[in-house]
Amino acid sequence: MKFAQYQILKEHALAACKAAGADFPAAKQLNPILLAYIGDVVFSMYIRLRLLPVSSHVRIVNDLGAKMVSAVYQCQAMTELKARLTPEEEAVFRRGRNAKSQVPKSASVYEYRMATAFEALLGYLFLEEQEQRLHELLDESFVIITERIQAAKKKED
């Protein structure tokens, strides 16, 4: 996207923000990358809140939190959770996994796509206000990721 196009789109978005009473778009109609963006925020907040009782040192909470929200560990969680998705959740998962985006060097293409699918699913559940299911998946993923980090640590030692 050229810078001029970016500026026009940004101005349009800012104008839309100023519109009073604007409704959220339907989650099913949102671009899966936008769902993943929302899901990333939801998951990051959840992880950081869960880590608060672990340590009073910000650096420890930040370092552990950054590791837990990485694409590598999100992929591992999604791989385990995938078999327990409803048909509606599977459709959101596939849309997120198949979304085209830049893949960072910190993860493989597969890991990044699975992490994007995971975040898109969380974003979808959040926007659809399916709080019970959202918390189920957040809790399960926290347990999976914690176990995987501990297993990796044991291999290092």
Rank of each mutant, 00 (worst) to 15 (best):
Ser56Ala: 14
Met114Thr: 01
His57Asn: 12
Arg97Ser: 06
Ile149Asn: 02
Ala27Leu: 09
Ala19Met: 10
Phe43Lys: 04
Lys105Asn: 12
Met45Thr: 09
Gln102Arg: 08
Ala120Asn: 00
Gln150Lys: 09
Ser44Val: 04
Tyr37Pro: 01
Phe93Tyr: 15
Pro104Lys: 09
Ile144Cys: 02
Ala4Val: 14
Ile145Ser: 02
Ala36Val: 05
Glu147His: 04
Pro87Gln: 13
His12Cys: 02
Phe118Gln: 01
Glu80His: 04
Met45Arg: 11
Pro53Met: 15
Ala71Cys: 10
Arg94Thr: 10
Val72Cys: 09
Tyr124Val: 01
Glu129Phe: 07
Ala22Val: 04
Asp23Lys: 04
Arg48Phe: 14
Asp63His: 08
Lys2Val: 07
Ala152Met: 08
Leu51Asn: 08
Leu34Lys: 03
Glu156Gly: 01
Glu80Met: 03
Glu119Asp: 00
Met78Ala: 09
Met1Lys: 05
Asp40Ala: 07
Arg133Ile: 06
Ile33Phe: 09
Ile145Leu: 06
Asn31Lys: 01
Gln7Thr: 06
Met1Pro: 01
Val61Tyr: 11
Ile33Met: 08
Ala4Phe: 13
Ala36His: 06
Gln132His: 12
Met78Trp: 09
Ser106Leu: 04
Leu127Pro: 00
Ala66Glu: 15
Glu131Gly: 00
Phe126Gly: 00
Lys67Gln: 15
Pro87Gly: 10
Asp23Cys: 00
